[in-house]
Design a protein around this nucleic acid. Sequence first.
DNA 1: AAATTATTGTTTGCATGCAAACTCCATGTT
DNA 2: AACATGGAGTTTGCATGCAAACAATAATTT
Lengths: 237, 237
Amino acid sequence: MNDLESATSKRMKRDRSATLSENLRRSLEEMIVSGTLTPGERLDEMEIAERFKVSRTPVREALKALAAVGLVEMSGRQGLTVSAVSIPTLLEMFQLMAELEGLHARLAARRARQDHKDRLISTHEQLSDVLKRGDPQLFYDVNREFHEAIYDASQSEFLADQTRTLRRRVAPYRRYVTFQPGRMTATITEHQLILNAILVADADTAQRAARDHVNLLGDNLADFIASLPPGMTRRSA
Amino acid sequence: MNDLESATSKRMKRDRSATLSENLRRSLEEMIVSGTLTPGERLDEMEIAERFKVSRTPVREALKALAAVGLVEMSGRQGLTVSAVSIPTLLEMFQLMAELEGLHARLAARRARQDHKDRLISTHEQLSDVLKRGDPQLFYDVNREFHEAIYDASQSEFLADQTRTLRRRVAPYRRYVTFQPGRMTATITEHQLILNAILVADADTAQRAARDHVNLLGDNLADFIASLPPGMTRRSA
DNA sequence: AAATTATTGTTTGCATGCAAACTCCATGTT
DNA sequence: AACATGGAGTTTGCATGCAAACAATAATTT
């Protein structure tokens, strides 16, 4: 029963989520979502294994899991790549995101308790502050916080999971939109509409506002893509 | 260049999707979706490996993939189980399904070409015929065909993928609803409404009709669950 | 007899090894 | 010279083996 002994390496393994493959999955997912690994990039099992100092087995398991969610693609034996989604698919993703966020907002308007509302309000104010400071990365993060607050208020865990999964899939592209001029300001305005509707429990308005908010994001993305020189859409590195 | 030789076992491996783990994933998924493996049931790696005459490696990869989609759960080292979803989660799933199907119907109403419409009509008629014969399993399958026809007409592949994935997740429970008295007849009526709206390109009506259709399913499920003796909802074997 | 510890067995997680298949380059043939 | 053919190297897919962890039972102690 020695305190020192119980804190040794044995305890390390006790951590439930401490399987190598699970940690790898998280790491790789983060790298894909954050753009460190770019869409279309080849993923070499051995390379990753060496990089993380593990064998290929947990690497393969992690990649299998990511492939099942659609973040990586395995086309037969010719190797794995970070999923590169086509423009039409990307627009579909935003369309679906719009519906999901709309549904969350609708449910939030109906179910939000006072603590949920408080969190929404404070997060929204926080985001307004960040806007003035003009830190895009921070804005990106706090913006996510605001949406998480809506998911929380909607009290729909499964729906939230689905939404987060989709969110991660569009994340590599979403950054292009977030940093568009005027988008951050517009976001604040749009959030305000959603927030107000939730606060007064106007489900229809909340749903519409949230849906429109994401659809505008999609439009911005489409605009951005259209402004790119042709061919730029294939290469994503 | 011997014909006989080129047709030997070497050719077998040429099939792109012929990796053991992929085939296993399909098989296990089918078993879960069809109810052969029941929610909550323990999945033993070795047992499955022996059953399919393969090593544990592809089994583990298949299970990892299924876990990523939510069909199986792996809680730490204490083994994997077929996912058992709680009642509230199940209702959330139907709610989301309703939105997805609604979106498909909306898009289908806007985009369906004549060939899509033909397929919808013929599938609908087919389902009506099946109703008279009273074969629940066949009804289940043709019903799926009708919905597939809608996905096809909506021309949204990604959305269709997402819908199918969710469909598979609720499949183990959906059967209870399909076989409820009166449900099949009601389904035909509801499909008719969706079909009519799509044929006349009335997007709003199509969306509402499809959404209501799935929501009614959810209601039926909720009724069925409520009619079960308490405690019956936990154990699912 | 009850509780705690030992121990055995089962099951998962990971590493390693091997073979099949793909890629690419070089050599050869027409 | 162009195309086909062959082979080396790379990469994936799967099997096997081992060790750590969990589960359950047996044994020991109080």
